[in-house]
Design a protein around this nucleic acid. Structure first.
Length: 945
RNA sequence: ACGGACGUGGCGGAAUUGGUAGACGUGCUAGACUUAGGAUCUAGUGUCGCGAGGCGUGGGGGUUCGAGUCCCCCCGUCCGUACCA
């Protein structure tokens, strides 16, 4: 067995082989032990308090894990192991978000079924994960692409279809209560979230409708529904693309043009939950930045909608405003260039100018529009609206600062109260009317104040802001010209994908209307297809399935669900992963409730994390979930960046010449990425470099410094193309999993992004070897541990570490606990302490971080094998840390000049007297009398002259 | 352009939350043991200065006996975004 002794050569290898920290043997042994003994298997039936630690499960890509992926898993694993030692029953599962585009893309290219590729990738992932020694309960593993899993994704879809959102109850209710209300009181008996175009009807009219007509009406209320939505359609690929697959108007893969197209899509009525999604943020311990992103994404604003009559026409233009109180200050109206009313409003004289403007807008990218905020542009349509309050004519303009997709696509311009409107009015010479007596300097810029009393404002003259808003809103509502309104930026979510590798939607069509499958027919499994491409007629890949009909006669829905479907409820499945009758049993959900700590990347801020909250709230409404929010606490681990190495090729050199980084300024060079795995401490392995690349001729010349070729470096994203990917398997092979775990934590705060630099790893490796030497003598391998009583000093250093590590784990500050271990090992080495009483506790506090070596040493101390996992975490005893004296830094005018030791309980008066009598202090006083002496007990003394 | 996070030695980072800045690790220098060293041990390592000492946490100002930490202005990096009415 080759072990760490590969560091050594010669005879001594034979002698020292068993003595040194043989991490490979140790880690393999304990991983096998854990597997065989099901050490991490979690039981649901226990008296212990529960704790649920969840990692965002990965998509199993073909590239495997790199060293950045395990960061969050290691952190959550440490926390899970710690919680177990603190007496909790900890659920800490892992699974795979295994539907996704890369597998499908691969299938298109190779014809291989995505299930096969996915399975292979998952196996590779599991192998890599097991290598790191995580305490996952693998018996609970889930895969979203397994039919026994997606059966329940489909089941949730069916529940969404069978429910509508009742605004009065403020929750989802079954469609049966909707139809019941209709039959009793007509459409006005119901206050529900629905499509814009729902008809009004009486109970009699409802009851007179045919079953089909009634069904069609309910489709406008259900929480999942069909609608025409704008999608990114790529004709060349024959498919719809997600936003992040489109770059600069062309497909990311292949660079084919992408167009906006209206398509019939399944939608999720997430907007029904907008309020609860915002309000719920107050109740969860998530980072402020994620909460802020979700708030912005949902974009709730309170205001009013107002209808303006177009002069001389029957049309009205509706605007949304958050400042209806400023309505008497309106001097123009602006509508988006894309607004559907533009052609109708344009007068013949203005036609040319308007068309030119509309075309110019189309050419500008969103980014351009964002960057040129200060530049005012716009064009007059020639038409006017009438301000309903003062009957004044208001010109209608087009301007690209108004967006068609937000609110109504039209805004009222109030130059005195809004800077953007002010800029616009100034540019076009429109009136700037003051509306509040508290507005100041509106000749120079807008003043958005809400203070003071209204002027020039008809029915609200003299009023304050609150009263004015209420008065105006009431006035509008009485006349049917407007109403108080809450506006959201968020739209309902498109739920269809014209793809193969996703959950089939459990719907069939009869006479053009969608109907759910019978629940007994779930799961609706993915049918076999000959190719993973759209059909010739442009249907999604499922259209290729032969004889794929519901009950042999009805067409199935051919689109599949999006990537986020399976991940929006997976935390429930871990609670009861094998259940065939429910997504998870009532008992399991009642016991585990929800996630206590969720660890994952912040890139899912508005996707996965918002959809999951939405589905969880829905599942709560229908009595499946126990809690309104699925994850109490969320921690976003930072990204691990790559650290790239470079070699410098001298331009036009013959033979090809590379110059070491320190000398490169003397030449004209081209920097080239070089694989970081053949570089050690920035020194290039020239032989490996030559043999690994075919663009390096064997006669290449290397200009060295100090006999070495030193590479340059830069921090970049970790990616294959930059040759800076580090595979955890390689690190485990060379240093062991425990070293990897410690080093990843040691790198820096969990939530910061930081570059991976293999250079530093020997520090944590050496620490473990040092720990090993507290147990076994170097060279001889003699067991050193004694039963002696620990000294006060030894107990002090131990308990300092127990305190520090315990506190650090609670706040997930793992980067600071690793140094605490190192300090402890250093101090015990200095004290030559090999006492069992001390080392036992050391091993226990280290166990969450470095489980393999801890099991090994725990057993070496004479304990039952494999039981360090179930030990209690050592209790910190403050009495060991009590000092009877304290060394005071003594400052003169804030600068430390000396230190003096006083008894811990010395009173400030005594300290002051002794300090002033001190030689060094007297010297610095230079005969002056101190103005003031500050004595902070057990902190500091400051003498102010 | 706005919002959020951040800025400390050659590098990764610590700092009891207002109290000795640079813990710990890496790297580097010198030495010991050694046939050897990517092992181990010892000493040193922010910067200027022979020294006493001065300076020092992106820059400038402020509060305080005392500021890396709190406040104001500016610069820079990263992440996010929506000219949101």
């Amino acid at each position: 067995m080759k072990t760490v002794t590969s560091f050594r050569r010669g005879n001594r290898q034979l002698i020292t082989e068993q003595m040194e920290y043989a991490f490979r043997d140790i880690e393999k042994k304990w991983q096998e032990f854990w597997e065989k003994n099901q050490t991490y298997r979690v039981e649901d039936q226990t008296d212990k308090p529960k704790y649920y630690v969840l990692d965002m499960f990965p998509y199993p890509s073909g590239a495997g894990l790199h060293v950045g992926h395990p960061l969050g898993y290691i952190a959550s694993d440490i926390f899970s192991r710690y919680k177990r030692m603190k007496g909790y029953n900890v659920l800490h599962p892992m699974g795979f978000d295994s539907f996704g585009l890369p597998a499908e893309q691969y299938a298109i290219q190779t014809g291989q079924h995505p299930a096969i590729t996915t399975e292979q990738n998952i196996n590779r992932y599991i192998e890599q994960l097991k290598n790191v020694g995580f305490s996952f309960d693998w018996s609970r593993e889930v895969r979203t692409s397994n039919p026994d899993y997606y059966k329940w994704t489909q089941w949730i879809f069916m529940q969404l279809f069978n429910h509508y959102y009742d605004k009065d109850a403020d929750k989802a209710l079954p469609v049966s209560s909707l139809t019941e209300a209709f039959s009793k009181g007509g459409s006005k008996a119901v206050n529900a979230v629905c499509d814009e175009d729902v008809p009004t009807f009486t109970a009699e009219e409802w009851n007179a409708k045919s079953e089909t007509e009634q069904y069609e009406i309910t489709l406008k209320y259900r929480l999942t529904y069909l609608a025409d939505a704008v999608v990114n359609w790529c004709p060349a690929l024959g498919t719809v693309l997600a936003n992040d697959e489109v770059k600069d108007g062309v497909s990311e893969r292949g660079g084919y043009p992408v167009e906006k197209k209206l398509m019939r899509q399944w939608m999720m009525r997430i907007t029904a939950y907008a309020n609860r999604l915002i309000d719920g943020l107050e109740t969860i311990d998530w980072s402020e930045s994620i909460k802020e992103q979700q708030r912005n994404w949902i974009g709730r604003s309170y205001g009013a909608s107002v209808k303006f009559q177009v002069e001389g026409k029957a049309q009205t233009i509706e605007v949304f405003t958050t400042r209806v109180d400023t309505i008497y200050g309106v001097s123009f109206m602006v509508i988006a260039p894309e607004h559907e009313l533009v052609p109708g409003l344009t007068t013949p004289e203005q036609k040319e100018a308007v068309e030119e403007y509309v075309n110019a807008t189309k050419r500008r990218s969103d980014l351009d529009r964002m960057m040129e905020v200060k530049k005012v542009s716009g064009v007059f349509t020639g038409s006017y609206v009438i301000n309903p309050f003062n009957e004044e004519k208001v010109p209608i303009y087009l301007a690209d600062y108004v967006l068609a997709g937000y609110g109504t696509g039209a805004v009222m311009g109030v130059p005195s109260g809004d800077q953007r409107d002010w800029n616009f009015a100034s540019h076009f010479g429109l009136p700037i009317v003051p509306i509040l007596d508290a507005q100041r300097g509106i000749e120079e810029q807008a003043d958005a104040t809400k203070e003071g009393a209204y002027i020039n404002s008809g029915i609200i003259n003299g009023m304050g802001y609150k009263e004015a808003t209420a008065t105006l809103t009431a006035w509008l509502e009485e006349r049917g010209l407007g109403k108080g309104k809450i506006n959201y930026r968020m739209r309902d979510a498109v739920f269809s994908r014209q793809r193969y590798w996703g959950e089939p939607v459990p719907v069939y069509f009869k006479n053009g209307l969608p109907y759910l499958l019978d629940e007994n027919d779930l799961p609706l499994e993915l049918p076999a297809v000959d190719k993973y491409l759209p059909t010739e007629s442009g249907e999604p890949p499922l259209g290729r399935a032969a004889d794929w009909k519901y009950k042999g006669e009805y067409e199935y829905e051919l689109s599949t669900m999006p990537g986020w479907a399976g991940s929006s409820w997976y935390w429930f499945r871990y609670m009861d992963p094998k259940n065939e009758n429910e997504l998870a049993s009532k008992e399991a959900i009642q016991y585990w409730k929800g996630v206590d700590l969720y660890v994952g990347g912040s890139e899912h801020a508005t996707g996965h994390l918002l959809y999951s909250r939405f589905w969880n709230k829905f599942l709560k409404d229908i009595g499946v979930a126990e809690q309104e929010e699925f994850a109490k606490k969320l921690v976003n681990q930072g990204m691990i960046q790559g650290r790239s190495n470079f070699v410098y090729r001298v331009k036009e050199s013959n033979p090809v010449t590379f110059v070491s980084a320190g000398l490169k300024n003397q030449y004209e060079v081209t920097p080239l990425h070089v694989d970081v795995n053949i570089v050690d401490q920035d020194v290039l392995d020239i032989e490996k470099f030559k043999s690994s690349r075919n663009d390096v001729p064997s006669d290449a010349v290397f200009i060295l410094e100090d006999g070495k070729y030193v590479c340059g470096w830069e921090v970049e994203k970790m990616s294959k193309s930059k040759f800076n990917v580090v595979n955890p398997d390689d690190i485990v092979e060379k240093y062991g999993a425990d070293t990897l775990r410690l080093y990843e934590m040691f790198l820096g705060p969990l939530t910061d992004s930081k570059p991976w630099n293999t250079n530093g790893i020997s520090g944590t490796f050496n620490f473990l070897r040092k720990l090993w030497r507290l147990f076994y003598e170097d060279q001889t391998g003699k067991y050193l541990v004694t039963e002696d009583q620990p000294t006060a000093e030894e107990l002090k250093v131990l308990h300092k570490a127990i305190k520090k590590v315990g506190e650090d784990i609670e706040v997930l500050s793992f980067n600071t606990s690793v140094p605490a271990f190192m300090v402890l090992a250093n101090e015990l080495t200095t004290l030559k302490c090999h006492k069992k009483a001390i080392l036992s506790d050391f091993v226990r506090i280290l166990a969450p971080f470095a489980p393999h070596i801890s099991e090994e040493l725990w057993a070496a101390l004479g304990n039952e094998a494999g039981t360090v996992t179930t030990q209690s975490f050592p209790e910190f005893n403050a009495s060991y840390l009590v000092e009877n004296s304290f060394e005071y830094p003594v400052q003169i005018n804030g600068k430390v000049r000396t230190t003096l030791t006083f008894p811990a309980d010395a009173n400030p008066k005594e300290i002051e007297a002794e300090v002033l009598a001190n030689e060094t202090v007297i010297k610095w006083l230079e005969g002056k009398t101190p103005k003031k002496v500050v004595v902070v007990p057990k902190r500091i003394v400051n003498v102010v002259i």
